[in-house]
Amino acid sequence: MIRGRVWKYGKNVDTDAIYPARYLVYFEPAEVAKHAMEDIDPDFLSKAKPGDILVAETNFGTGSAREQAAMTLKFAGIGAVLADSFNRCFYRNAINNALPVLSMRGISQQIDEGDDVEIDLEHGRIIDHTSGKEFQAAPMPELLQKILAANGAIAYYRAHPAKIAEPVKSAGAACVGESCRE
């Protein structure tokens, strides 16, 4: 279950803000985890607890392809990121590292800093226990849910060595709505 306290951020939170370029040389999880949100919120690691949830406006993760931006949040124990929209590469990196991400237009205006929020990824349901409101996002495409459930793309691929996914040949079957940002 994903449930935690909300930390809110604005629009266009870029990868330099999430994980500054000066630490690009590091890939070890313990080191990568030390620099989460360092340039946008220097107190982040001292205040956020494992399982907490980030809620951001549009275009979260814009900027570079650096996977450390997703890894640092995962390794720092963040439970999920909700945003009005995501940068596509950050979105892929998050899924590949089993960091749950869900997008829904307008969600950042509905949830307040400090709220206690629960997320049901399979059904795209978001429950704000503080305000009592519930929101319905488009469920994540099945393939991406499988990658998350396998704890990341490498584990998923190893369990499915022939192919990462069966090509979906029927028109439009794979993706509906805002949650679908490869």
Binding site: A65, C89, R92, N96, N97, G152, I154
Partner: peptide, 10 residues
Amino acid sequence: TGLGVTDTAI
């Protein structure tokens, strides 16, 4: 198109 290191490895 740009990817992370996991996608690139795959």
